[in-house]
Computed example of a mutant assay.
Amino acid sequence: MSKVVIMDHPLIQHKIGYIRRVETGTKDFRQTISEIAMLICYEATRSLPLADVEITTPICDTTVKELKGKKMAIVPILRAGLGMVDGVLNLIPAAKIGHIGLYRDPETLQPVEYYCKLPADCAEREVFVVDPMLATGGSSVAAIQMLKDKGCKKIHFMCIIAAPEGIAKMQAEHPDVDLYVGALDEKLNDHGYIVPGLGDAGDRIFGTK
């Protein structure tokens, strides 16, 4: 079963409280989303494999630790996931970026792919899928399946707010993918929004209605 890490860091909790507020404007919301993503990424990368590397300091030769093998790829789920990319890049500026676009079919309510562009060597990288909200889990499950279909094996998922229903669906469909969650909320309402949540993350990041 996948690991679910709910963040307990005071800075993350403080910043999530700020973006929940209805009066927080677009500029501050966008900036804080990026900051939270960076803090969650710090925790989510804790178990990345390391290798010993011989180097020379100004004083002597020594052995240091570096990330092992291929580095990371960040894959936001469009469009709200874009709001988390810069925060992750602040920590790992060499990461490559893919994009997955999904929309929900109004008839079947199932996610439908409309865009997918990934780094050519994505299958060899540690892939971090990012989306601010994990609500029903439909889009996240579909995005991760698309990555697996393209050969990706080391996949992690980062979100800022999750509902229990979304976590349960992710664990059922992708038990090999670890989840890193800023806050676990109470439930989904009848419209599929997280309660108490923060509204529509995409609208609040991009200033649309």
Rank of each mutant, 00 (worst) to 15 (best):
V127Q: 03
D131M: 12
G138D: 13
L109N: 02
P106D: 03
F157I: 09
C116A: 14
D105N: 13
E124M: 14
Q145K: 08
L118P: 09
P132A: 10
H156R: 15
V141N: 05
H156T: 10
P93S: 08
A94Y: 03
I161K: 00
C159L: 06
M146L: 15
H99L: 15
L134S: 01
E107C: 09
S139Y: 05
Y115C: 03
I97T: 15
L147T: 07
M158Y: 05
D105I: 00
T108M: 00
P106V: 01
Q145L: 07
R125K: 06
C122E: 10
V129F: 02
Y115W: 09
F128K: 05
V127L: 09
G151S: 01
R104W: 04
K153I: 07
G101D: 02
A163E: 11
L118D: 10
L147G: 12
A143R: 01
P164G: 06
I155Y: 10
R125W: 07
A123M: 06
A123T: 06
C152G: 11
C152D: 00
F128T: 12
I100M: 10
L118W: 11
E126H: 11
D149E: 14
V130C: 02
C159K: 12
L109E: 07
K96T: 13
A94I: 12
Q145N: 15
D121A: 02
M133D: 09
K150Q: 15
Q110Y: 10
Y114C: 02
G138P: 15
A95Q: 01
L134G: 10
A95L: 05
V112G: 08
H99A: 11
L147C: 02
A120G: 09
D149V: 10
V129C: 04
G138F: 12
G138Y: 11
K96Y: 06
E126T: 12
S140E: 15
K117E: 10
M146V: 12
H156G: 08
V130N: 04
C122K: 01
S139M: 11
P106C: 01
R104A: 06
G137Y: 12
H156M: 12
G137Q: 06
P93H: 04
H156Y: 14
D131P: 13
D105M: 00
K153A: 11
L118M: 13
